[in-house]
Design a binder for these strands. Structure first.
Lengths: 217, 217
DNA sequence: GTAGAAATTATCGTATACAAAAATAAGATG
DNA sequence: CATCTTATTTTTGTATACGATAATTTCTAC
């Protein structure tokens, strides 16, 4: 089906960690995974290496790999950094965005609006990613864009949960408006501030959500 | 000698990329590397995967791995992000640092001073790392600390060059004083600003250095 | 002589095999 | 019965083997 077995295993394990099927500290046994994915140990080992690289697993020499789900504290820390990066992207975008990029950004936001009117949170999720992607591109720093994207991806599975929180979708959309306005006005400081808050609010929502769901560690 | 063959290969190739023995775009042939490091292809492939993960190589499916030395533009971009992260660390440290951590920070700076008096740029390099490491720890966000450390490491080989630039060592040290003062005073905004500048100046110095050395691409 | 096609070669991705180290189980000794 | 020692088993890390795909070369046709 897919091109590389190693990639399949990587994404599969990643998914299972995100959904909680594989829990924190659980051992990632090479032989079992190989059997589960119908491949040999070689691609499994490659997948595990990549998991370790992306921080989802820990490797102890001669002992094996173990799931390393972010703790509550680490999640908050990641949101804190995400907030900073997102703010930086917006700040730079306010200074560097082109007319064309601004138009694309507005179009993406229009997509968000339509998703809200259709009350389609899954569509909103994708349109929202698109919106932020526009800002990453417009910041004119592809390294920053890539780092931010990567962190967003890492917080992704939790975000998806958040947008279903009551009333979050319209509020998120209103914040988008503020972000666009400040970027269009070239107000870097405000774009920075508003974007930071946009992320931190999500962090807080995440916090609420977790508190409702179960005990953090 | 060492524990893992894969690690040896990884560090070896990393070193050769940093020193310029392996140039941008050059192919990382599995068989040749295996022969060079007296190991089989398996650990070589693992090393290459890690190199790709840390951004030092690119992988094209069914075509192989190629050295991906950061371009001039990417270096500037990385400095821009480093500046932001370093600023964030300092800002948080100004709010969260403990008395004990502050003492350690001052001690590290004392080490820098001694290195200057001894005119030992190599020692200064290490003491400087120690100084910044204190701030990372004091920022109270271990994820941020880890990300910043990782980026520092990536810019490391170039930094090492920079500190040998004429007059940089004392200037860097003076900037440290400003950083300590603002952190001690709990002035988060100033700590942020000064730390950002501290990095950006290095970026500019790097810029100068490159301009002197050879043509950027 | 050049362009395209077929065959050959090289290299990647995966599977299997084997050696070394660690975990576990079994046995001996007090 | 507990504990230390030793044997067995499991599992990691590395080497080798094999199939598939892309690159290269050779060959043929024009």
């Amino acid at each position: 089906m897919s091109s590389r077995a190693a990639t399949r295993v990587f994404q599969g394990v990643e998914e299972q960690i995100a959904t909680g099927q594989l829990k924190d500290g659980e051992k990632l046994d090479e032989a079992s995974l190989a059997e589960r994915f119908h491949v040999s140990r070689t691609p499994v080992r490659e997948a595990l290496l990549q998991l370790v690289g992306s921080g989802l697993a820990t490797q102890i020499p001669k002992r094996g790999c173990f799931v390393k789900a972010p703790s509550f504290r680490e999640m908050i820390e990641m949101f804190e950094v995400m907030s900073e990066l997102e703010g930086m992207c917006a700040r730079l975008a306010a200074r560097r965005i082109s007319d064309e990029q601004l138009a694309t950004l507005k179009a993406a936001n229009k997509g968000c609006e339509e998703a809200i009117q259709a009350n389609d949170s899954d569509l909103y999720y994708h349109k929202n990613v698109e919106f932020h992607e526009c800002i990453y591109t417009a910041c004119g720093n592809s390294f920053l864009a890539s780092e931010t994207r990567s962190l967003r991806r890492r917080l992704q599975s939790f975000r998806r949960l958040q947008l279903r929180v009551r009333g979050r979708m319209p509020q998120s959309f209103n914040e988008h408006d503020e972000i666009i306005e400040s970027i269009e006005a070239g107000d870097a400081d405000k774009a920075d501030l508003v974007s930071r808050q946009h992320v931190m609010i999500q962090g807080e929502r995440f916090n609420d959500l977790l508190a409702h769901m179960e005990q953090p560690q």
